[in-house]
Each structure stands twice: as structure tokens, then as C-alpha cells.
């Protein structure tokens, strides 16, 4: 049994972690020690290998009071302070969706993406199906060009891989879309400097022992496209995001995973039993 420490909502982090949300779970595994740590909720979690402190964050723009290196440094200092004071090392889970359920919380704490891979949905497709074009917000011409080029080139090499190709195309395009700012708050040079600084900040946090999961490129300040071209570091981020997204959204196959036909559940079986009984 491991303990998941979840600090209360503050500074744009753990926005879900408020008393009413915890109360709505009505789960015995959720506890608070108002005397020792009045600002932290603790969850007993069997699935985690070690104790950890969870910080769920969205995009960098939601975390910084203003788009400046000082604001970035302040946020990094805040994470470092939590990491230093916490009962267990901090895990920074990037989630662009609101945390709405306990399972989602546990998945993020485990370094997994949410929602999990849907095997049944994936099994409805084969390599014969085309990979759908990823969606791109209006006005993002460079991201649109990227998505179009990607879908034109991508191949599904093996029948069970359609979902992987589709997810990967969407993940790469979403990364490009996040990174290319069409409505910048700062000038191009400052944006590039801030992106470099945020990349260095994440590396420094990791050097401190903070682990990071989810689409971590969202923690890098966005930059404008350069005359219709994609910045080199952004293109590399997108290729990395493809691998990270797969890595963090695997399927937990049962160790023995026998391919069992649930015959008893089949309507025809029940019908046969009834028919036999009437004989």
C-alpha cells in the first residue's frame, strides 16, 4: 500500500483538489490529517509502487501570473518548495482536461494518460480504415499544413495498429497546435526565450527528483510560427510526444490473459438452456 499526497488547490495546480470534490468521492481511502498537514489530502493507493505527492497542472499559461522569466522562476520555486517539504517526491502530471473522477486521479498519479486506451473501440478498426485528419483550431495555418502533411504520409503497417496511428497523428498535431501561438502575449524573441527557459526549468525540476508525465510540452511557453515554418525544437517536441503518449497509455494485459470466450454470457446459450429444460 502506498500513499498519494495531494496538496490542496493553489497557484493553478491541483485545481480539482477542493473539499467538496473530495467529499463527493465518498471513498474510505481518502483521509486528511488536519493537525499534521492541513493542506494535503492523503489517499491509500494499492496501485502505486511508492509514495508520491501529486501536482496536476494544465498549460504553462495557466500557471504563470504573467509571461515573464520571473513568473516562471516563481512557479518553479513553488514546485521546488512543495517537493522539499512534501512527505514524498513530487510527481507533476500534465493534464489538459479537468480531473473529474477518482480513476482519472489514480491514472495521473501513476504517470498514465487519461482516458485509458479503449481496446473495444480500437478493435472496431483495422489497417483498411483511413487515419482521420486531426482537428486543428481555426487560424492555425502552419499546424493545419503539418496535420495535412502528416495524414498524407502516415501508414498503418499492421491490422491492430489503426488506433495507434490515429492517436499518434492526433497527439503530434495537438503538440504542434499547442506550441504555435497565433495570439501571442509577448513578442517572438521573448516567446522563444521563455520557451527555452521553461524547457530548462523542467530539466532542473527533473534533476531535483520531480517526475513529469502527460503532454509536458504544454509546460513550454508557445512561440509563433516563423513565416509558415515550424520551429525546429517544436517539431522535435511533436515527434517525442508521439512516443511519450504511447508510453503513457499502454494496456495492462492480464499476466496469463487467456483468450476466454464468455460462453455463459451469450444469449444463445441461455436460449439453448431454456429449450433443453422444456424438453
Amino acid at each position: 500500500m502506498s500513499l498519494l499526497h495531494v496538496p490542496d488547490a493553489a497557484g493553478g495546480m491541483n485545481a480539482f483538489a477542493v473539499p467538496t470534490w473530495w467529499a463527493s468521492l465518498e471513498d474510505d481511502r481518502v483521509t486528511r490529517d488536519e493537525d499534521e498537514r492541513p493542506d494535503v489530502t492523503v489517499v491509500d493507493v494499492a496501485e502505486l509502487p511508492d509514495d508520491r505527492t501529486l501536482l496536476v497542472v494544465g498549460s504553462v499559461a495557466e500557471l504563470l501570473a504573467e509571461p515573464t522569466p520571473d513568473a516562471l522562476a516563481a512557479w518553479v520555486g513553488q514546485v521546488r518548495a512543495i517537493n522539499a517539504a512534501a512527505a514524498a517526491p513530487v510527481h507533476l502530471a500534465v493534464s489538459l482536461d479537468e480531473v473529474t473522477c477518482f480513476e482519472q486521479l489514480l491514472a495521473l498519479a501513476a504517470g498514465r494518460r487519461w482516458p485509458p486506451f479503449d481496446v473495444v473501440a480500437a478493435a472496431r478498426h483495422t489497417d483498411a480504415d483511413p487515419v482521420p485528419p486531426p482537428s486543428v483550431p481555426g487560424g492555425q495555418d502552419t499546424a493545419r499544413a503539418y496535420a495535412d502533411a502528416l495524414v498524407a504520409q502516415v501508414e498503418v503497417l499492421l491490422p491492430p495498429a489503426w488506433q495507434t496511428a490515429t492517436d499518434s497523428a492526433a497527439d503530434a498535431t495537438a503538440c504542434i497546435s499547442r506550441a504555435l501561438d497565433t495570439d501571442p502575449d509577448v513578442g517572438p524573441a521573448d516567446a522563444r526565450a521563455l520557451r527555452d527557459a521553461s524547457r530548462s526549468a523542467l530539466a532542473a525540476l527533473e534533476a531535483d527528483g520531480v517526475t513529469i508525465s502527460g503532454p509536458r510540452d504544454a509546460l513550454l511557453w508557445p512561440v509563433p510560427a516563423e513565416r509558415g515554418l515550424v520551429p525546429i525544437d517544436v517539431a522535435a517536441d511533436a515527434a517525442l510526444e508521439v512516443m511519450l503518449a504511447v508510453l503513457e497509455r499502454p494496456v495492462d494485459l492480464a499476466p496469463d490473459r487467456p483468450v476466454v470466450v464468455p460462453v455463459g454470457e451469450l444469449p444463445a446459450r441461455a436460449l439453448l438452456a431454456k429449450l433443453g429444460g422444456r424438453r
Binding site: 499544413a145 504520409q153 495507434t164 499518434s168 503530434a172 504542434i176 516563423e226 515554418l229 515550424v230 515527434a239
Partner: peptide, 18 residues
């Protein structure tokens, strides 16, 4: 910076292997 087609080709190479 690089042409979006080339940027996409980089990711496509990874996806094809996946």
C-alpha cells in the same frame, strides 16, 4: 525552423515504426 511537411515526416517516421 523547418517546412511543416518535413516536420511532419519526422513524426511519420516514428508513427510508422510504432
Amino acid at each position: 525552423a523547418i517546412d511543416p511537411g518535413a516536420a511532419a515526416a519526422l513524426a511519420v517516421g516514428v508513427i510508422s515504426k510504432l
